[in-house]
């Protein structure tokens, strides 16, 4: 169980920074994982979290900004096209954030996601023994 946890740990940090660590699944021994990483990794779980949340944070900033804008635009004329367009932007960004949130909750394992698009990559190889 402990080794399993470390697998997804390290691969996650690999995905986050492709150049920093290289992973190879060993076909010798009992199928244990060998990590040829440069130096110790201080806090990989934090890294994973950061990467996963990156886009929604940007979108959240955009959302607060567009809500503020819409409120300002509509003070002048509540029924104007500009006011409607400003709130329309708020709706669009809100919907996109919601979609991203759903998508993120569906994404189970970052390694699985990566390997779906790149089955030939070293870290996606599967050895029978």
């Amino acid at each position: 169980m402990a080794s399993l946890a470390s697998v997804s740990f390290q691969t996650a940090s690999f995905l986050a920074s492709p150049a920093s660590a290289s992973l190879r699944r060993s076909n010798s021994g009992s199928g244990a994982l060998q990590v040829s990483s440069v130096g110790p990794r201080p806090c990989p779980s934090l890294r994973l979290r950061f990467v996963a949340m990156a886009t929604p944070t940007d979108m959240n900033d955009k959302l607060s900004q567009s809500i503020k804008e819409a409120e300002e635009v509509c003070v002048a004329d509540n029924g104007s096209g500009e006011c409607a367009a400003a709130w329309d932007e708020v709706e669009e960004i809100s919907a996109e954030i919601a979609h991203k949130r759903v998508k993120q909750s569906e994404t189970k394992d970052p390694l699985e996601e990566f390997c779906k698009d790149a089955p030939e990559a070293d870290e996606c190889r599967v050895y029978e023994d």
Binding site: N60, L63, S64, A70, C74, W87, D88, V90
Partner: peptide, 16 residues
């Protein structure tokens, strides 16, 4: 969501 409130949700629906 940060920035949203009951008022902003209402305003967005009624403006559109």
């Amino acid at each position: 969501e940060r920035g949203h409130s009951l008022e902003s949700i209402k305003a967005s629906i009624s403006a559109r």
